[in-house]
Amino acid sequence: MKTLTRQEWYGALVAVLVLGIFLSIASPYFLNSRNLSNILVQASVIALLAGGQTFVILTGGVDLAVGSLTALAGAMAGYMMIKLGIDPYMAILAAFAIGAGVGLFNGYLVAFVGIPSFIVTLGGLTLWRGLAYDSTGGFDMSGLPDPFPFIGYGELFGFLPMPIVVMAVFYITMSFVLSSTKLGRYVYAIGSNEMGARQVGINVRWYKLGVYVVSGLCCALAALVLIGRMDSSSGKIAQMFELDAIAAVILGGTSLFGGRGSIIGSLLGAILITMIRNGMNLLEISQFKQMMAIGAVVIIAVWIDVVRRKRLLRK
C-alpha cells in the first residue's frame, strides 16, 4: 500500500483542493451545495468517458474517437425513440450494442491487425461522426421519453442528481474491475511491458481488444446521460469531448506512456476540468481565454508526466 503522497492521483487531489480554495475566495457564488452539485453533474459525462479512456491509456494506447462514438450512440438512440417509436429500453440496449460494436472494431484493428490506436481512432473520429449525422438524417430529436428525463434531470431520494449517482456507481465498479480482476491487473502489465506480458503467457491481444470494448461501452453510457441532460439528441453532440476525456485522465496522473495510473485520478481530473470551466464562468472569463486555459493545463499536465517518467527511469 502506497502512502497518500505517493499515489498517482495525489497531484490531482491537491489541484482540486487548491483550485477550490482559490475559487471560494475569488467568487462568492462558488462554495455552495448547489454549485458543487452542479459541478459534479457537469463533470459526469466527461468522467464516464475518462473512465473508459483510462483503460485504453493504461495499455499505452489512446482513444480519440470517444466524442464521435458518444454522438453516434446518442444520436442513434434518440433517432430510434423519436423517429422510429422504438421502446426506450430497447434504444438503450442498442446504444450499448453500438458502443461495444465500435469498440470491437477499434480493438480488432489495434490488437489483431496492429494499426496504431492513434490512427484507428483518428479515422474513427470523423468516421463515427459522419455516420452519426448520416444515419439520423441530420435531424434534431427532442422531447425524449422516460426514463431519459429521470437519467438527465431526476434526483434519487429527492436530492441526489442521477448523473452523479450514475458516475458514482460507475467509478466504484471500475475501481473494482481495475484492482481486483484479471483484466485490471493485465492492463497494467501490458502497459508497462507488453513484450514481458506476452512472455508470461498473458493473451495480450484479447485484453487489448477488451479495453476498447470497455471504452466503447463507456461512450454509450455517457451518451445516455448526455442526451438525458439535454432532453434531446442529434449527430452534433459531444464535439471534441475526446480532448476533455484524455485531459481528465492525464490530469489524474495516469501516464500517457501506459502502465501507470489510477481510475480515481481520472474522476478527479474530470472534476478539475469542470471546476476550471465553472470557475471561469463564474468569474466571467471569455470563451477564448477559457479555451487557452484548458489547453495550457493539458500541456502542463503532460509536462509533469514526462518529467516524472524521466525521474523514474533514472532511479
Binding site: 454549485n35 453533474v41 441532460r229 439535454m230 453532440i237 464562468n281 466571467e284 471569455s286 470563451q287 477559457q290
Partner: peptide, 17 residues
C-alpha cells in the same frame, strides 16, 4: 460567455452557472 465550439452541453453548463 460563449458555448465553446458551438457545443450544446457547454452552453447548458453556462446557463446553470
Amino acid at each position: 460567455l460563449a458555448a465553446e465550439k458551438g457545443e450544446l452541453s457547454k452552453q447548458l453548463a453556462i446557463v446553470e452557472d
